[in-house]
Amino acid sequence: MRIIHLSDIHVWRYAFNPLRLLNKRAVGMFSLIAGRAGKFRLERLHEVVTRVLELTPDHVLITGDLTTTALADEFREARSALAELLLDSTRVTVIPGNHDRYTTGSVRYRLFEEWFGMFAPPGPYPWLRQLDEETAILGLDATRSHLSARGFLPPEQLDRARELTNGSSPVPKRLLVACHYPLAAPAPYVVELGPKRMTNAAEVAAWLATVGRHLYCCGHVHAAWSFVPEALPDQICLNAGAPLLRDPTGLRPPGFLQIELEGNEVTTIHHAWTGDDWSTRLLSQTPNFFGVRMPTITPV
C-alpha cells in the first residue's frame, strides 16, 4: 500500500475587511503582510498535486493546516487547488490543523467541516478508518481556537481513543495515528516545538505507549522527518513538512512523504522541490516493523 502524506499547505489570502479582523486573524494578517506570505509559494501547489498523482497513491493523508487564517476564501482555494487529489473521498483522509480552527467564528460555523469534512468518517473524533484488512487510520483532533498555537486533546476524546485501542476489539495490524501536533521532535526541532506543542502531550504519549507498533503522522513543525521517539520505542513519528515552504537555507526542503507499506515493512521517502525539479531521499526503512505486536496494556 502506498500512502502519500501531506501537511501544512497553508493556502493564504489577504483580508482587509475590518469585520474579519476583530479577532486572532488580525495577528495572522499582520504576519502575512510582514513576510509570511512570501514563505509559502502558492504557485507551486500545482506541481505538488501533479507529483502526487504521478505516484498513483492508494490513499492520500493530509494532516491539517490547509489554510492560514481559516478564511472561507482560503478553504475554497485549497479545495479547488487540491481538486484532482480529492475525486474519491474513500481514498483521501483530511484532518484539521490549528490554522484551520484559527478563530472562534471558523469553529462556530464549522468551515473546515464544510469544505473537508467529507474526507473523514462522520461523527466526532476520534475515529478509526479502515483502509484495507490490515491497515487503518486513527484520527485525533487536538486543535482549538486559542491565542497560542498550542493544542489540547480533550479528555473525552482521549478516553474514546483508549476504548478504540484497549483490546476489546481487534487493533489493526498496521495502525496509523493521524494528528496535526507532534508529541516529540528530533533534536534540531525540540526547541521550536516546545512553545507550540500539545499541552497534554505526555498523557497522550503514555496512552500511545500501550497500543503497540504504529506510525504517528503529523505536521505543525515545518520540517520533514522520520524518527523513533525515545519515550515511544514502538512508534515511527512521521512529519510531512510543508510542501510550499520557501527555504533559502536548504535545511527544510519543501515537500511531502511517500509511505510504503508492504507486509510488515515500512519505507518512508521524502519528495522535495529543489526549485527546478523534484528530488527524493530515503528517510527510513524498517523491514519488520509491524511483525511484532506488543501486548495491549489497559491503563489503570
Rank of each mutant, 00 (worst) to 15 (best):
L111V: 08
H46A: 15
R162L: 12
L164F: 01
H46P: 04
P182S: 06
S106H: 04
G105W: 12
L164W: 01
P155I: 02
R110C: 05
H59K: 08
A178Q: 05
L153C: 06
R44I: 13
T104E: 14
T103W: 03
F116S: 07
F40H: 15
D159A: 15
G97V: 09
T69P: 07
G139Q: 05
G139W: 00
A72Y: 00
A161T: 13
S106W: 02
L53S: 12
T68H: 15
E84L: 14
S148I: 02
L82V: 11
S148T: 15
P154N: 06
L153P: 02
L66A: 10
E47L: 15
N166V: 02
W115C: 03
A72T: 11
T63N: 05
S106Q: 07
L45F: 13
G64Y: 03
P170M: 11
A161R: 01
F152S: 08
R91C: 09
F152G: 00
L164A: 08
L128D: 04
S145F: 02
L153Q: 04
D58N: 15
V177W: 01
L85G: 09
L85D: 06
F40S: 12
L138F: 04
E74Y: 09
M118K: 13
R41W: 08
L138A: 08
L176S: 06
A81L: 15
W115V: 02
L82K: 12
F75P: 01
P154E: 07
E47P: 00
G105L: 14
G139H: 01
T68L: 05
Y102S: 09
Y109Q: 12
D100S: 09
V107F: 02
V60F: 04
M118C: 11
E74G: 10
F112T: 06
F116N: 06
F152D: 10
E47S: 14
R129D: 04
P122G: 03
E47N: 14
P172Q: 11
E114N: 08
R144Y: 02
G105N: 11
P172S: 11
D132F: 04
T68A: 10
L175V: 03
S168K: 14
V60A: 04
A70D: 12
P126W: 01
Y181W: 04
R150T: 09
Y125H: 13
S169W: 00
L158F: 02
D141W: 01
W127F: 13
D159G: 11
F152V: 11
A161S: 08
A142C: 06
L55N: 10
T103P: 04
L86V: 10
V107N: 05
T135C: 11
W115G: 03
Y125V: 13
R129I: 00
R174M: 12
T50L: 12
